[in-house]
C-alpha cells in the first residue's frame, strides 16, 4: 500500500505517495525524473547509483525509498547552482575525467562527500573515497587528478 513520504531532494521539499518496495533509485529516476542517478549492477558493487543522504554516499539501488523519509537527498542534478557548475563538475570536465559518463554522477557525489569533510585530501585518500565507484573507461587516473584539482580550486575559492 502506498505511503506518503516527504523528502528534501536537492534542497527542495517534495511529497510523494510510494509503495514500500520501491527503491530510492526508482523514485528518483521514474517518479522525479532525476535520471542522472544511474543503475548499473543492481547489487551495490559499482556505485553508479550513489546519492548523498544527509551528505553521506549511499547506494540508492539498495535503499527502499521509504527509509529515506525526511532526509536530505542530493543527486547529481543538485550540485550546480543554476548554470554555475560545482567545482568538482568543472574539474571533471576540464581534466578529461569523463568518458562515457555513466559512472560520473556517482563518482562526483562520492568526491563531494569526501571534499565536504576533508577539503585537502591526499591522492591516496581520494582513491579510498572513490573505491566504491567502478569505472570501465578512464583507468581512474584523470578522475583522481580532477578531484585533487577541485579540492585546490575550492580551497582557493574559500580563502578568497
Amino acid at each position: 500500500m502506498k505511503q506518503i513520504a516527504n523528502f528534501i531532494v536537492n534542497g527542495k521539499a517534495c511529497e510523494l505517495a510510494i509503495e514500500p518496495h520501491m527503491l530510492l533509485v526508482e523514485v528518483l529516476r521514474d517518479e522525479l525524473g532525476l535520471t542522472g542517478t544511474k543503475q548499473s549492477c543492481g547489487i551495490g558493487h559499482c556505485g553508479a547509483c550513489t546519492v548523498l543522504i544527509d551528505g553521506i554516499p549511499t547506494l540508492s539501488c539498495l535503499t527502499p525509498a521509504l527509509t529515506a523519509r525526511g532526509k536530505n537527498i542530493t543527486t547529481i542534478e543538485g550540485l550546480a547552482e543554476g548554470t554555475r557548475l560545482h567545482p568538482i563538475q568543472k574539474a571533471f570536465i576540464d581534466y578529461g575525467a569523463i568518458q562515457c559518463g555513466y559512472c560520473t554522477p556517482g563518482m562526483i557525489l562520492s568526491a563531494k562527500a569526501l571534499l565536504d569533510r576533508n577539503p585537502n585530501p591526499s591522492r591516496e585518500q581520494v582513491k579510498q573515497a572513490l573505491s566504491g565507484n567502478l569505472c570501465r573507461c578512464t583507468g581512474y587516473v584523470k578522475i583522481v587528478d580532477a578531484v585533487l584539482a577541485a579540492a585546490e580550486s575550492m580551497g582557493k575559492e574559500a580563502s578568497e
Binding site: 529516476r29 532525476l34 550546480a80 560520473t104
Partner: peptide, 23 residues
C-alpha cells in the same frame, strides 16, 4: 589542443540522456 568535450557538461550534471533514460 586539450579541448573540452561537447558532451562533458551534460554528463557532469546528470542532464545527459542515454537509452536507459529515455521515456
Amino acid at each position: 589542443k586539450r579541448i573540452i568535450q561537447p558532451d562533458a557538461a551534460a554528463k557532469a550534471t546528470g542532464a545527459a540522456m542515454y537509452a536507459s533514460d529515455l521515456k
